[in-house]
Amino acid sequence: MTAVLEADSITKRYGHVTALDGASFTANAGEVTALIGDNGAGKSTLVKILSGVIAHDEGTIRLDGERVRLESPQHARELGIETVFQDLALAPDLGPAENMFVGREILRGGWGGRLGVLDKARMRREALESFVSMGTDVKDMFAPVASLSGGQRQSVAICRSIKWASNVLFLDEPTAALGVRQTRNVLDLVRRVAARGVAVILISHNMPDVLQVSDRIEVLRLGRRVAQFPGQGTSIEQLVGAMTGALDQRAA
């Protein structure tokens, strides 16, 4: 397994609050890596840094072994890093297809394209193809996203990221708002994306889910990585112990 994304000793401070305190993190191609930790451990902050949304204060990030500085979300995406944020980052007034192509709109060929004219039909078609092939029940390409169910909204956000992820895919608590069946779908999706060779990072509070879907598990506590486990043969007690600090195991 090659490490696609490596973060080393990342520090991030918000005034007096230290959100990350020398956190390290590794994700391998074709693997699902779970990132777990108690509330406030710094998971979301780490994801935002690794997807270019916010800048970190100290530490280094390597992509395919090369040191990179992620200047912006745009830059991260150009490097093949996609993220489903905890807040989904959807435009509620726009439809699923429109959301799928936000910032990456397909333009018409020739003259119209040069003037910035959108190829709406093609975007709708491509979006519908993704939604269907991912097994979601998002069918109406015109309904504003705000009128969809929570699960459908989640599906739109996930499908969007999957569509564009070529290297790394972050999912920040993607199943938090979902029912049992929808959670199943998402977890299946996660496995399928990893099978394409993408490094998938899943943040979740649901330990059974984490154990079921992950190849590796990394634990954050108080802004640091405190443990790494294999997905196979780890128990919920071990994970909870690492998260709460009852069982400290220094990261390598």
Binding site: V53, S72, P73, Q74, R77, T83, F85, D87, A89, L90, A91, P92, D93, L94, E98, V102, G103, R104
Partner: peptide, 16 residues
């Protein structure tokens, strides 16, 4: 224009 009005943060993260 629509995306920015609907969710400026989403627009920003989408690289707009």
């Amino acid at each position: 224009t629509y995306v920015i009005g609907s969710n400026p943060e989403a627009a920003r993260r989408a690289g707009i």
